[in-house]
């Protein structure tokens, strides 16, 4: 799914990620809530994050400083905005649809 190369069972190749849990809640009308945990095997200085809406190893500094948009979490063409309290980011599609992601 994430292009993660699996070495052995449960072992990830360097720099790859996999989605460990994905819980999609569509019970509410007009809104989908997806709770996702990704696991990454990153090189030194990197840490699990999101790039182009996929789990990826990103610069650890980005996670530390919570400058989420620097890891390019949105799809190409989408606009990224940092949430005011730095708890996450929003991706705005050209059509105006907004995805709000918070990091937990």
């Amino acid at each position: 799914m994430m292009g993660a190369r699996f070495l052995k069972e449960g072992q990830l190749a360097a720099g790859t990620c996999e989605i460990v849990t994905l819980d999609r809640d569509s019970s509410q009308p007009r809104r989908t809530i997806a709770r996702q945990t990704a696991r990454c095997a990153c090189k030194k200085g990197q840490i699990a994050g999101t790039t182009r809406a996929r789990p990826a190893c990103v610069d650890a500094r980005i996670i530390k400083t919570k400058q989420w948009c620097e890891m390019l979490p949105c799809l190409e063409g989408e606009g990224c905005d940092l949430l005011i309290n730095k708890s996450g980011w929003t991706c705005t599609q050209p059509g105006g649809r907004i995805k709000t992601t918070t990091v937990s």
């Binding site: 007009r30 809104r31 990704a38 095997a41 990153c42 699990a48 709000t100 992601t101």
Partner: peptide, 14 residues
């Protein structure tokens, strides 16, 4: 491994 957990809320207009 490092883990990254996110909650994404996608609101659709009808």
């Amino acid at each position: 491994y490092t883990y990254f957990t996110t909650v994404t809320v996608e609101t659709m207009e009808t």
